[in-house]
């Protein structure tokens, strides 16, 4: 059970959150202009990294805000949290 530091509410138990998968996958601005393959890339293709991963989480049972998390999937340590629209911290690649 993680402790997640909601950028708005502070440190809370994981049970207050829901996970939203990989972060920084931007919805194409003009989906109609994409080929099937390009659209499938957006729709289906996700990384599944052992190591540092960028994820979206929602403080579903708190402030209802979505935000980003940098998590090392090999040990589940959350290295950083940042708000939607903010740039990911540069020291994790």
């Amino acid at each position: 059970m993680f402790l997640i530091n909601c950028p708005f509410c502070g440190e809370r138990d994981q049970s207050e959150f829901s996970s939203g998968g990989e972060a920084h996958i931007v919805r194409p601005k003009q989906p109609t202009e994409l080929s099937d393959d390009e659209w499938a890339e957006y729709l289906f293709m996700r990384k599944n990294i052992k190591g540092i991963q960028f994820e979206r989480w929602n403080h579903a049972h708190g402030c209802r805000k979505w935000f980003n998390v940098v998590r090392d999937t090999s040990n589940d340590k959350i290295l950083s949290v940042y708000k939607m629209g903010e740039k990911p911290p540069v020291n994790y690649k």
Binding site: S18, G20, V26, R27, R56, N58, A60, R64, K65, W66, M84, G85
Partner: peptide
């Protein structure tokens, strides 16, 4: 509601 909030907050702020 959660899906709609997701779009509002992340895709169409």
């Amino acid at each position: 509601l959660s899906k709609l909030e997701d779009y509002l907050q992340t895709e169409w702020p």
